[in-house]
Design a protein around this nucleic acid. Structure first.
Lengths: 277, 277
DNA sequence: TTATGTTGTACTCATCCTGAGATGAACTCA
DNA sequence: TGAGTTCATCTCAGGATGAGTACAACATAA
């Protein structure tokens, strides 16, 4: 049940006055992940003003509520996430890469006191992107960059280790930790690792995505067999890659994402044994 | 990044006026599931007033923002979920069953127009409860009841089949569908099925939980072997059940929930094959 | 050119997990 | 007493997995 049902609709609207209510702000924050140089990176912006001036934060901002006061259109939550991402990266929201990128809701963070100024409920989104250009600081940000997640010193409990230079504002260390754990899990039972690659990729490239997200090396032969045996994971293009920069070996074959939405059987990560309880 | 960082904190608070902003309301809705007579039930309340008067809805309501206008304490989101559940069931929130019940965030629903009155962002929670007494309609509800989910005619796309008598208000059919799918998945890789049982249970009782949630019969022998072989899923009490009502056979042994938080290896549901793409 | 090291792909093999069925003992009900 | 049901365990075949091996294709250095 959503708001107060004790008045009927027209009566409610006639009697409603926002001044009767304590204000709650709703924002979206985006955990945008990509692979650069074989390492997992997250998009961060640097805050120019208090609170948390100089610290880094996830890109995000207000959801446009829709109404007469600001004169904005009401905006759906995923649209707000893409808009905020576009404002920070300088990429176009609709036609470009951002429109085809994988985006899913991560969770909502609303503890009292998570923003020192006022009550803020933040809906976090998780995005998987292929390699994108360096962002241009825009909007409210003093700076914006793809940052290797290993450089943030995240602990399992959602904090940052003491001594980490890049500190995260608000509860964004927790949100990012949750996003990383979600990403690690998603790679197990969905084909979303292909969302980190471009339109075509080789099996070794796909393997390097898994290794970057999971943080451990995988057995090349078994990975190859597994990917090709799961129906709908990838489909062959018939071509071979001529990308340079490799240190030897035959030209790897090229593949496209398949049409499966779930991997069956799943690709379970080896380290899962230890973190069971 | 959360709100406007262009002013510092004290300046922001001095200049902040909620009348400058279009209002957004934040509610929590709860998908509370339990097993009754071997069938999966969800807690629903019947709306007494417009909009959607006479229709059924998930229990829920406003989050207390905290502030001078209503004079309420700021309330964390899970606390709001438990409070709303307590108001509908008549059970005590803190000490009783509701305090020990499994509760997790399901997702946030904020499409413009999902509430005809105003912009409402709803944070949905998912609860697994052991068998609870019939609820007493309280708070805003005209009626409250545990309803078999099969009687709601839910389709995979989150709608209700035409001809279903109990219609769900707002987008609650979608929220409930998402909650059911989450529950089905959770049973695969977590020991949360035990949250539907009381403190002690038999393997056949646990199996009936899986069968009710997954909607398919399981092989008794294989299920037994699997549950006992997964480390930390259940631990024996050494006792046997003397519960009546069974149609024959030896007295089953009693078990307690174990200390595992994840099932490894997982208990995969057989029907997963068909819904892969 | 040759030698060396690296990489992509394919194969083997022992082990584990799973699904399907069978068995026997314990219990209820007619 | 007999028939039917249920709990618990066992067997067996097939599939999936982890670890290792093999070899050709390629880059680079000697």
């Amino acid at each position: 049940m959503t708001p107060d049902p004790r008045r009927d609709e027209s009566e409610f609207l006639a009697n409603y006055d926002p001044r009767d209510y304590d204000p709650v702000s709703v924002t979206v924050d985006v955990v945008a992940l990509t692979i650069r140089d074989g390492a997992l990176h997250v998009l961060l912006v640097r805050r120019g003003n208090a609170p948390y001036a100089g610290m880094w934060a996830l890109p995000g901002g207000f959801v446009q509520a829709g109404g007469p006061l600001q004169g904005t259109e009401a905006e759906d939550l995923p649209d707000a996430a893409v808009r905020e991402l576009a404002e920070e990266t300088g990429l176009s929201a609709k036609g470009g890469v951002l429109g085809r990128m994988h985006l899913e809701q991560l969770g909502t963070y609303g503890s009292p006191g998570r923003d020192p100024r006022m009550r803020v409920i933040s809906v976090a989104y998780l995005a998987f992107a292929p390699e994108l250009p360096d962002p241009e600081a825009g909007g409210d940000a003093a700076d914006a960059a793809w940052v290797p997640v290993d450089a943030l010193g995240l602990t399992e409990s959602g904090d940052q280790r003491p001594g980490t230079t890049r500190r995260l504002a608000f509860d964004h260390a927790r949100i990012l930790s949750d996003g990383l754990e979600r990403a690690r899990g998603k790679l197990e039972y969905t084909p979303l690792a292909t969302a980190f690659c471009g339109g075509e990729f080789t099996i070794p490239e796909l393997r390097s995505v898994y290794e970057a997200v999971w943080g451990e090396e995988l057995h090349a032969g078994n990975f190859h067999r597994k990917v090709l045996s799961v129906p709908g994971f990838v489909e062959s293009t018939g071509e071979t890659s001529d990308r340079g920069g490799r240190r030897g070996g035959p030209k790897p074959r090229l593949y496209r994402p398949g049409d499966a939405r779930l991997l069956h059987p799943a690709l379970l990560r080896p380290s899962r044994e230890e973190e069971i309880r």
